[in-house]
Design a protein around this nucleic acid. Structure first.
Lengths: 336, 336
DNA sequence: CATCAGAAGTTATACGAATAACCTATGAAG
DNA sequence: CTTCATAGGTTATTCGTATAACTTCTGATG
């Protein structure tokens, strides 16, 4: 900047004021032009560090995730957060810890020493997290999970509402014998599993349908679970006309089971998934009706809250999981 | 740091020297302890911006991608780059431009004003890129693509070798009638398409097998292409005993075609894919033998080159695509 | 006793930008 | 002719750290 000043024949202060001051015509047109020319000629670029050093806060937000970046699932969450940050002129300093607490601590220290404007602390799936204390030093938001101690506010999918929406969609299509293949509720205790099950139960009860214990199955999210439970359900004496699967991958397993047993989807069996995995759900035959995890919305909202700064403690903001209608649901056939 | 100095009853310079100097015992043990105590008590953390301002280069590397972060494909490339950077104590400043050149230019400017140690310029798929000139100001490497003007060095998958490996694997299993369903070579001109086709051709010729034009099909990478071409190939008078598919998704389409026509994989038809998409290839039945795009290796290598700094101009470093053997390849049956 | 080497710190300054406070013509008003 | 407002700048200082150069003291040596 001193070089620019010299080239333009003015003082460094003048250059700074010309370049930054939105406040009217403090300087003559001539001076402004000379400064601008010098800037262009010398290819001057401001040094962000000097600016931060003086101003206090950097134009960066920290994004710390466990496996978020590597997960095909949630990569979009980073993109959304970054988009939102950029709209406010901020860049994202991202770290994928891979679950390594030491790396996590070290990179948080580094981020804080870079005076980030705030931190988004994200997880690959909806769970209860032990959030590092150090995040208290700066506006921080937990993303796609919740703070176990309730000190930080968080943004997460509304699993219960999602389970309710999925089940009600099947009920609305005329189904009454609706099975659930879900992640294990007791074993995992995950909000995702617990919430979806609760939503399923609520929808059934609200519509006067009994939750048949034989129709509620638990797995671990992968397609073999879907395959086995669906096979068992479809070969039982009293078989369901629809299955709500807690993950798209288990839904895929159910598809394979149906194909193996000669049941046709959706005419013999309706299926609703969960996750709207873009590499899977739209490509199944028939394309899978499922619920979308609102990654974009959550990523944006988390940055919103960070920028807002002064958040009420520990509030959990639940975001709606929209139903993505495709071709795996129809009316049940009349059955004996 | 002045506060720490005051609390420890020494000068600021002493604090700085005690905290940084690896160079032996310049200070008494007592002083060191007092400084360290003060640091701990006050929770002092160094200001990275002041450090950079004095030292010149920041502990950050810029990572600019088009759609990399959102692609389920290549998210791991970021993780690998970040891991490698962190091993050298650097953080990644990531931006996903979504193909927006204005955003790209703006974020590059911002990165440069943050004095990044270098920039990794990544693309979602292997293509020839117009790399922004401004990257010349700092050590930069093109990742998963190549610089059209050959000024920057780049790291990309060795598509030709990959196509060769896949084809030779089928030949080694005893196949001679090997079809190719590839991305369109002429239309796209993509290194991925051109290279894999070239590798296929070379393997065939080297083993004295003729490339049958009827056996070479072009699509656009999605599973309907695989489905249609495989259907056509399998219903022809002279049908192949193996298909090499240029993408896993087209391989999936081929699976569906085979199932529809009553061909069993691998006993009636062997298939090799490309991409090793983790959400697809291992989960198909039978699990798909395919080639892996070396995202981790490339991501690490790109950061290596950036840190190395002084690279020969325009060198393209091709990285091997390893064969991932699963269950979709076996010997051909004796056929009439 | 003069001299000197080393140990243990301190002082002063630079990095690059922002900004409060100050300076100096110029012309207009009283 | 004095006074003074204003346009159009400049000077000096601040942010937090690193480090070259300097100081001071202590004990040892010839």
């Amino acid at each position: 900047m001193h070089d620019v000043a010299a080239a333009a024949g003015v003082s460094q202060a003048t250059v700074s004021l010309v370049l930054n001051s939105a406040s009217g015509s403090r300087f003559s047109e001539d001076t402004r032009r000379r400064v601008q020319d010098a800037v262009d000629r010398l290819g001057y670029r401001t040094n962000a560090h000097a600016k931060v050093l003086r101003g206090g806060v950097a134009g960066m937000i920290g994004f710390v995730g466990d496996f978020v970046a590597s997960s095909p699932f949630a990569g979009r969450i980073i993109e959304a957060a970054q988009d939102r940050a950029w709209e406010s002129g901020l860049l994202l300093l991202t770290v994928n810890t891979g679950g390594d607490r030491a790396l996590e601590a070290a990179s948080l220290e580094t981020m804080l020493s870079y005076k980030v404007a705030g931190v988004v602390y994200a997880s690959m799936y909806h769970q209860l997290l032990d959030v590092p204390e150090v995040l208290g030093e700066v506006p921080s938001v937990v993303l796609n999970s919740e703070d176990r101690d309730g000190r930080f506010c968080s943004v997460a999918p509304d699993e219960e509402e999602g389970g309710y929406t999925a089940t009600r969609h099947l009920i609305a299509a005329g189904h009454t014998r609706i099975a659930l293949i879900n992640n294990d509720v007791l074993e995992s205790g995950l909000p995702a599993a617990v919430g979806r099950f609760a939503g399923y139960s609520r929808a059934m009860q609200e519509h006067g349908l009994e939750v048949n214990p034989d129709f509620v199955r638990f797995g671990h999210g992968a397609e073999p679970d879907g395959f086995e439970h669906a096979t068992s359900l479809l070969t039982a004496a009293c078989r369901p006309t629809a299955i709500f699967c807690g993950t798209d991958r288990m839904a895929w397993g159910a598809y394979q089971a149906a194909a193996t047993l000669g049941f046709s989807i959706p005419s013999d069996l309706s299926i609703v998934g969960f996750d709207n995995q873009e590499t899977l759900a739209p490509h199944l035959r028939p394309a899978l009706t499922t619920l979308e995890l609102p990654f974009e919305a959550m990523g944006r909202r988390a940055v919103d809250l960070v920028l807002q700064g002064t958040e009420p403690e520990g509030r959990v903001e639940l975001m709606e999981c929209p139903l993505i209608e495709r071709n795996s649901v129809t009316h049940p056939k009349e059955m004996p």
